[in-house]
């Protein structure tokens, strides 16, 4: 069995706003009827966080839930717990129409942390990241530069970004360059 490694293998770019590889993280794409109470109960049991409203992500530590679309939820768990989590979801939704797929190795997770973290992203995404409009708990799927990405705000100074594994280097360099260039000072 080969060892699992994250796409960026612990890469860190240190500046006033630090951009770093957040390492391996278990991610499960859940599609189906997301109003299903059994699905909600299973997710609550796995992550211990509240069900996210549209455009929101609830994350505590390595666990969390993010609202991806009206029929899709992203379930975040520690990397090693994915097979067990998939088993629990399958048990809870037995006989129902749904899809649960382990996408942990298809993605990269990057964390931006520092005093102007939102500005680092605001330079790259067509999203209003003004502190009055994008607050802790908010989640957005969009693009960063030329690639698809999603991000959510943990707290005012910390934002988690996910992108496809194949574009992890591009995304990391993009964020690191934006961070190194400093704040715009508009917010």
């Amino acid at each position: 069995m080969s060892n699992s490694v994250s796409a960026l293998q612990g890469k860190v770019a240190t500046a006033k706003v630090m951009v770093r590889d957040a390492g391996l993280r278990g991610m499960i794409t859940l599609r189906g009827d997301i109003t299903n109470t059994k699905l909600k109960a299973a997710c609550a049991g796995l992550t211990g966080v509240d069900w996210p409203a549209p455009g929101q992500a609830n994350c505590v530590g390595d666990k969390g839930l993010a609202w991806m679309s009206p029929d899709e939820i992203l379930l975040l768990v520690p990397y090693a717990e994915v097979p067990a989590a998939l088993g629990l979801v399958a048990k809870a939704l037995k006989g129902q129409h749904y899809l649960a797929e382990n996408v942990s190795d298809a993605r990269a997770l990057i964390q931006i942390e520092g005093p102007f973290a939102a500005e680092v992203l605001a330079k790259l995404a067509p999203v209003d990241l003004h502190p009055a409009n994008f607050k802790p708990g908010n989640f957005r799927r969009t693009r960063l530069g030329q690639v698809a990405a999603a991000f959510w705000m943990r707290d005012v100074d910390t934002i988690d970004v996910i992108c496809f594994r194949s574009v992890a280097d591009y995304t990391f360099d993009l964020l690191a360059t934006s961070a190194a260039a400093g704040p715009v000072g508009y917010f």
Binding site: P54, G55, P126, R141
Partner: peptide, 12 residues
């Protein structure tokens, strides 16, 4: 109308 965000042309 599905996710409730104001999406820029480049997101669409």
């Amino acid at each position: 109308p599905y996710c409730g965000v104001d999406a820029d042309e480049t997101d669409l």
